[in-house]
């Protein structure tokens, strides 16, 4: 075993992990573990008691996050983490619910849940890891795959238009929308702190390298090459127009990152309580306050 570990101090994220399940299933260089690091540090910084925080994941590589975090974690069916989180949040409004899943899960299979949760402005935090493919099942095309990218189901390149996720979330009514990459660890952590403290539907898209499936199939190099590419080509534009931040080609000249939307709007439960107390008067018992 190791020579020096545990002798001086414990890894700061250790208390958030189910260490008996490590090493995890993610490939060498995968960006998911990096964002889990950021998430654990963000939770620590927010000071949320761990029994008041629940994390919900769907299926996929990123869906495994719930299995490795030592919180109340739920591994749900494919595409349904937001549906599950809706029930969790409404049944126990004191719980802070975080949905942590991938692009294929949240906007491919479960796109409908995503847009309606954003429209209703449910008080949940959605962290979406975008690796442009269904990595766990072998690399099928997702709605976020850029033009000309090679996937298992599109051997001659993708010819469909893809989703611009910050614009999708913002136009559906999310109150907090940000995009970062797995290279921007400090910014991701800060965005997660802001999103956790935000009342309403907060959405963070994190671009993450998938060295085994997406990068290898498209001959884009290793995970380190991808992180260097993020470093050199990311342009931070806070408050940018979300219509113009889409990633349409495999290697765009610039990736616009930053915090795009940060507005205040009454969330679902506040609006429900306000409306029903007006209509029903004293008969109505306010929920979740």
């Amino acid at each position: 075993m190791s020579v020096v570990v545990d002798s001086i101090k414990e890894n700061p994220v250790e208390e958030f992990l189910r260490t008996d399940r490590l090493p995890h299933v993610w490939c060498t260089g995968c960006g998911i573990g990096t964002t889990v690091n950021c998430f654990a540090r963000a939770v620590k910084e927010c000071g949320i008691p761990l029994d008041e925080l629940a994390i919900v994941s769907g299926i996929g590589c990123t869906g495994r996050v719930a299995g490795y975090l030592k919180l109340d974690s739920f591994h749900t069916t494919h595409g349904r983490p937001i549906a599950f989180a809706t029930g969790l949040h409404l049944a126990n409004p004191k719980l802070k619910v975080v949905v942590y899943s991938g692009d294929g899960d949240l906007v491919g299979i479960g796109g409908n849940h995503f847009i309606h949760a954003a429209r209703r402005n449910l008080d949940i935090t959605v962290i979406l890891l975008n690796n442009f493919t269904y990595a766990m099942t072998g690399g099928q095309v997702t709605p976020t795959a850029p033009l000309d990218s090679i996937e298992t189901t599109t051997p001659y390149g993708v010819f469909e238009e893809n989703f611009n996720l910050p614009h999708l979330a913002a136009s559906c009514g999310a109150v907090y929308v940000a995009r970062w990459t797995a290279y921007h660890v400090m910014q991701v952590k800060k965005a997660m702190v802001e999103a956790l403290n935000k009342k309403g539907f907060s959405f963070i898209e994190i671009l993450s390298p998938c060295p085994t499936i997406y990068l290898r199939r498209n001959r884009l190099g290793s995970a380190i090459d991808e992180l260097k590419y993020y470093k050199e080509h990311s342009v931070i534009q806070h408050g940018a127009d979300t219509r113009e931040v889409g990633i349409t080609v495999r290697r765009p000249e610039k990736i616009i990152v930053g915090k795009f939307v940060d507005i205040e709007k009454p969330d679902y439960l506040t609006a429900m309580n306000k409306h029903l107390s007006e209509v029903l008067g004293d008969k109505y018992v306010r929920w979740g306050e």
Binding site: V13, H24, W26, G31, G33, T34, V36, N37, C38, V185
Partner: peptide
């Protein structure tokens, strides 16, 4: 920063 980046903790 090494600890922030390490995907394997």
């Amino acid at each position: 920063l090494c600890g922030m980046y390490c995907p394997d903790f």
